[in-house]
């Protein structure tokens, strides 16, 4: 039985930050007249937890050797990453309002050599776990305490090649690698299959709900990043994390009216929490 470690004050703080991040994501998409929204909104909580509670870094020294690294192969989560990095002080929030514009620092996919806080390219090609695994291994061999946190999607596990790479990662000594695998909470049957697959591939697996910071903390506290197998966190994402627009999940651009409505909806949700 895991002990709840997170107090109410911290929980409230993280919920507030998450709400602000999600508003920023909406504003970015509204100003840019272009998404993606759905994945960004639903990953906001996890990224807030990682960047406020878990990962070690110094925003003023984005290239510090002993920092934890974050990587993702979900291009749709990039707006959330930008919003989190801005709020964490890696760069000015002003940059968010130029998202996707010609010449802007924050392009649709991050230029990891140009945007402070972005540790690796986010490409649409897969399997990127190979890149994360190698980076984790090299950092571990150098006796660097850094961890590599790799955000990916459940559907990637359906690819044989990806599974093969996961198997190889488990065979190599990478206790400092954590794969956070997104999964819809409605897919209970799928959850077991995913968990069994990862365990059979030699990974140390936990699951947690995206929207529940305490559950995320419980999962992270139970991991030993200094030894053992690479870690996997099955992150259950609730549909309610997204904003609904006229009953349909929004995944593309927003008009100004729709942006106002979505922001209002988020305000209401924040008050409910």
């Amino acid at each position: 039985m895991l002990v709840k470690l997170m107090d109410e004050g911290k929980l409230e703080k993280l919920n507030n930050i998450s709400a602000e991040i999600r508003k920023d994501i909406l504003r970015m998409a509204g100003v840019a007249r272009s998404g993606p929204l759905r994945a960004s909104l639903s990953t906001a909580n996890l990224l807030v937890y990682l960047y406020w509670e878990e990962m070690l870094f110094v925003p003023d020294e984005p290239l510090r050797e002993d920092r934890d690294r974050f990587m993702t192969d979900i291009p749709e989560a990039v707006p959330a990453l930008y919003a989190v990095l801005a709020r964490r002080g890696f760069f000015e929030r002003e940059h968010l309002w130029h998202y996707k514009r010609l010449g802007a620092a924050l392009q649709a996919l991050p230029d990891f050599r140009r945007v402070p806080g972005v540790d690796a390219p986010c490409a649409a090609v897969r399997p990127q776990i190979a890149m994360a695994g190698v980076l984790a291994r090299e950092l571990f061999y150098e006796k660097n305490s850094s961890r590599v946190i790799f955000l990916t999607e459940e559907k990637n596990l359906l690819c044989d090649e990806f599974a093969e790479d996961l198997k190889r990662s488990a065979g190599k000594y990478t206790p400092n690698l954590l794969a956070a695998v997104l999964q819809n909470s409605s897919a209970d049957a799928g959850k077991n299959v995913l968990q069994e697959t990862l365990v059979s591939l030699g990974w140390d697996v936990r699951s947690a709900a995206f929207s529940d910071f305490a559950s995320l903390e419980d999962a992270f506290v139970s991991f030993d990043f200094n030894s053992g197998a690479p870690k996997a966190l099955i992150a259950l994402q609730p549909d309610s994390a997204s904003v609904r627009r006229n009953g349909a999940l929004s995944s593309d651009s927003l008009s100004m009216d729709e942006l106002d409505m979505a922001l209002e909806e988020l305000e209401e949700k924040t008050i409910e929490v």
Partner: peptide, 10 residues
């Protein structure tokens, strides 16, 4: 594909 990704990781 994995080899290319790994080379990038290195």
């Amino acid at each position: 594909e994995s080899a290319v990704m790994s080379a990038a990781g290195f």
